[in-house]
Amino acid sequence: MIFSRGRKQDPVVEFWAWWPTIRPAVTEAIATGAFEPLTPQISKRVAAIHKDLTWEFSKGAGARHALVVSPGGNPALRATVARWGALAPAADPEWEFHTARQPDHETLSATIEIAGAKLDLALLRFAFSRDEDSAAIDVIGHHPLFRKLPEPVRGQITFLALDWLLGEEGVELWVGAVDFSAEEPDGARDPLDLAAAVDALREEHREPQWVVFSAELRGRPVTGIAQRPLRSARWPRFDTHVAVVLPYRDGAEGLPSDEVADALSAFEDGPLETALHGNGELVAHETTGGQRTLHYYVDGASSAGDELTAAAAGWAGGGAAGQGAGPAAAGKAKVKRAYDPGLEAVAHLS
């Protein structure tokens, strides 16, 4: 007799197959407040996807209710949550689904109890300033009761308030340094003023923006470009760094001549871009000492990494149209690949 082991079921697919069976009971529980029997069931299904995911129900933006499954600020879980969201059913008047906590301005007018104190959240204030270099807004939170609360609780309240004000994704994308103060900082303003500043920054970056930079490394000039903001929350599926290093014939001080620069750009815009098939993004490149390093981030579950590697082999491929750089190349391309959901490999460019 031949025994075969069944294939392990995909917990994301299982979750969405199960959701319609529990949805009526969840809708009713929201109306009655009788959540106790349902909470363990939902927690078990979410934990089956990953034990560190968080979940909650909230008021929807377009629907009456929303189910949120979030990575909780852990970049390693963003690709998992993105896949959960991609397989979610279409929103309807009753339910919508999100992969990050959504803004909830109503909570900022409530009174909460924390660490034995009652805080009127309407008294929260934020001082903030724009960090032009990183396309982010630095924030200092303040509440009159902070002077009576220990530092960890002040921080907890500040970060919770930012999530309610901007949504989890808004904080990850547009907020830089976060601090909190027992004394009211100079320039402290209403939270909605901070929300308006973030909205303006988001609108400014609605289209992808690139920053040109130059520096010196060990006596050699370095030039390059990088996307702004350079934050992993922009590309939740793209968890794998692929560095494509293209050696070229040196021009002045190790930088490419105009002719070689054109060949590099054509190779980037042609074979390498085609290899992505929507499963990756070029986020930056650096040029120095006779080589250009292109920093791609790809969906590690896709074939994009393999296809980039195959396409890069055409760099010294003889110069046929769309195949390689011909005389611009000074050797074969090198490709390095590593799991990097937090964009650590390009942190020096952010």
Score class of each variant (00 low, 15 high):
Leu38Ile: 09
Leu38Asn: 13
Leu38His: 14
Leu38Met: 07
Thr39Gln: 12
Pro40Gly: 08
Gln41Gly: 08
Ile42Lys: 12
Ile42Leu: 12
Ile42Ser: 05
Ser43Met: 11
Ser43Glu: 15
Ser43Val: 06
Val46Ile: 08
Val46Gly: 02
Ala48His: 14
Ile49Gly: 06
His50Asp: 07
Lys51Asp: 08
Lys51Met: 02
Leu53His: 05
Thr54Met: 10
Trp55Asn: 00
Trp55Gly: 00
Trp55His: 01
Trp55Lys: 04
Glu56Gly: 09
Phe57Gly: 15
Ser58His: 10
Ser58Trp: 01
Lys59Glu: 13
Lys59Thr: 13
Gly60Gln: 06
Gly60Lys: 07
Gly62Gln: 14
Arg64Ile: 08
His65Leu: 12
Ala66Pro: 07
Ala66Asp: 06
Leu67His: 03
Leu67Ser: 13
Val68Cys: 09
Val68Lys: 09
Val69Ser: 04
Val69Asp: 02
Val69Thr: 06
Ser70Leu: 01
Ser70Ile: 09
Gly72Val: 07
Gly72Asp: 01
Gly72Lys: 10
Gly72Asn: 15
Gly72Phe: 04
Gly73Ile: 02
Asn74Lys: 09
Asn74Ser: 13
Asn74Trp: 11
Asn74Arg: 15
Pro75Thr: 10
Ala76Phe: 03
Ala76Ser: 05
Arg78Gln: 05
Arg78Val: 06
Ala79Ser: 02
Ala79Gly: 01
Thr80Asp: 05
Arg83Met: 15
Arg83Glu: 07
Arg83Val: 10
Trp84Ala: 06
Trp84Ser: 05
Trp84His: 01
Ala86Gln: 08
Ala86Asn: 04
Ala86Ile: 12
Leu87Tyr: 14
Pro89Met: 13
Pro89Lys: 11
Pro89Ala: 04
Ala90Ser: 11
Ala91Phe: 11
Ala91Asn: 10
Asp92Ser: 00
Pro93Thr: 10
Glu94Gln: 03
Glu94Val: 09
Glu94His: 01
Trp95Met: 13
Phe97Leu: 14
His98Trp: 08
His98Ser: 09
His98Thr: 02
Thr99Asn: 05
Thr99Tyr: 02
Thr99Val: 08
Thr99Pro: 00
Ala100Cys: 07
Arg101Gln: 02
Arg101Lys: 15
Arg101Glu: 14
Gln102His: 05
Gln102Cys: 09
Pro103Tyr: 02
His105Ser: 10
His105Trp: 09
His105Cys: 04
Glu106Arg: 03
Thr107Pro: 00
Thr107Asp: 03
Leu108Pro: 09
Leu108Ser: 02
Ser109Trp: 15
Ala110Tyr: 03
Thr111Lys: 11
Ile112Gly: 00
Ile112His: 02
Ile112Glu: 01
Ile112Trp: 02
Ile114Trp: 07
Ile114Gly: 15
Ile114Asn: 12
Ala115Leu: 13
Ala115Val: 12
Ala117Asn: 14
Lys118Glu: 04
Lys118Leu: 13
Lys118Phe: 13
Lys118Trp: 12
Leu119Ala: 00
Asp120Ser: 15
Leu121Lys: 07
Leu121Met: 05
Ala122Asp: 13
Ala122Val: 04
Arg125Thr: 08
Arg125Val: 01
Phe126Thr: 00
Phe126Val: 01
Arg130Asn: 14
Asp131Tyr: 10
Asp131Thr: 04
Glu132Pro: 13
Glu132His: 10
Asp133Asn: 07
Asp133Cys: 13
Asp133Gln: 10
Asp133Pro: 06
Asp133Ser: 12
Ala135Cys: 12
Ala135Thr: 03
Ala135Val: 11
Ala136Glu: 12
Ala136Trp: 15
